[in-house]
Design a protein around this nucleic acid. Structure first.
Length: 325
DNA sequence: TGCCAGGCGGGGT
DNA sequence: ACCCCGCATGGC
């Protein structure tokens, strides 16, 4: 049972930073964590600490007795991208053939980050699977492991399984439909529990190429997975997670050979390379490649209502939760 | 039904 | 340094 330990208003800082909380909370979120008005944000997995954040900017932090509220508040600001200056990203996007529309309509969006463990699991679930399949796996993981925490005045909040939950009940990975990805997730959980994997603090302070190399030591974690995780967990965007989807789209949009896409992408996006990849999946509703290319060719470069893309993931019924919260 | 999807590693050349 | 294949699973 977690008690409210802090309450504050995010409006001033969101306005100052140009952040749209609705856009930030809705993208790549699940219905059991966001209902269109309020989000439950995991601040810490073990021991659990969560925040409730409304699209109007009201924030409440729930944590175990003895935790430091100001540290958790800082963590919430970081998770919501409120400590990040994204101005130069949107400046670049404004004149980009793929993201110019996104830059004008979605300028207030910031990436919502998570911890390194869940970022890696998220990235693994995107391997060789459609967007819908990958996010379905994640929702099933949360439902099957059934980890949750009670807020004193607000009922239960589902939490992602922790590494030790997965190690204790590995068979649930396959039940969640991860297939051969299960072994990779187990490897990640084992590396974290054994201390083999450098902490996110360590990874944050070393050169990004070196961080990627460290993550790739885990079998099943390749360049795509490592880079996506560095973006999702550490907000390190220098290395783009280029998959066949981005490769084909960028080759077309930028007029280069597929083998030249990574270089071209990094030349154009620089320190925002990974964020641009993630933004593109939002802009094109993560549509399967042939549809995404058709979207690009007809200039439909904004999330569309009813497409069921990342911006509407929270509206979908995934993973077997009967109702939000 | 069979084929493919935001990868990956192991095997070939 | 490449190329190529199999891999679990779910959706079409």
């Amino acid at each position: 049972m977690l008690k409210p330990v802090a309450r504050f208003d995010l409006n001033a800082i969101a306005t100052a930073k140009g952040v749209n909380l609705f856009k930030t909370l809705c993208v790549y979120n699940f219905g059991f964590w966001f209902d269109g008005r309020e989000a439950k944000v995991t601040l810490n997995l073990e021991p659990p600490a969560v925040a409730r954040v409304t699209v109007e900017g009201e924030a409440r932090i729930y944590a175990p007795f003895g935790s430091d509220p100001s540290q958790l508040e800082e963590r919430l600001l970081s998770i919501l991208g409120l400590l990040e200056s994204a101005e130069s990203f949107y400046e670049t996007a404004a004149s980009d053939p793929l993201l110019s529309a996104f830059a004008s309509e979605w300028r207030g969006w910031r990436l919502r980050s998570c911890d390194l463990w869940w970022a890696l699991v998220t990235a693994v679930c995107q391997q060789n699977a459609s967007f819908r399949q990958g996010w379905g796996m994640l929702a099933k993981l949360v439902a099957l492991y059934g980890r949750r925490v009670e807020l004193e005045d607000r009922g239960w909040v589902p939490l992602p399984p922790a590494p030790r939950d997965v190690l204790a009940e590995p068979e649930k990975l396959r039940n969640a439909g991860l297939g051969y990805r299960s072994a990779t997730v187990l490897g990640i959980a084992g590396a974290i529990e054994s201390g083999e994997l450098p902490s996110s603090e360590d990874l944050a302070s070393e050169p990004v190429e070196q961080a990627e190399t460290q993550l790739r030591k885990i079998k099943g974690v390749g360049s795509y997975t490592a880079r996506l995780a560095l973006a999702l967990a550490l907000r390190r965007y220098e290395l783009p997670p280029i998959d066949r989807w981005v490769k084909a789209l960028a080759a077309k949009a930028y007029g280069v050979e597929e083998k030249a896409v990574e270089g071209e992408w990094r030349k154009r996006w620089g320190r925002w390379s990974a964020l641009a990849v993630i933004a593109l999946t939002v802009a094109l509703d993560a549509a399967p490649l042939s549809k995404a290319i058709a979207r690009f060719e007809s200039g439909r470069l904004l999330p569309e209502s009813g497409a069921g893309g990342p911006a509407e993931l929270w509206r979908l019924q995934l993973g077997g939760f009967a109702k939000p919260f």
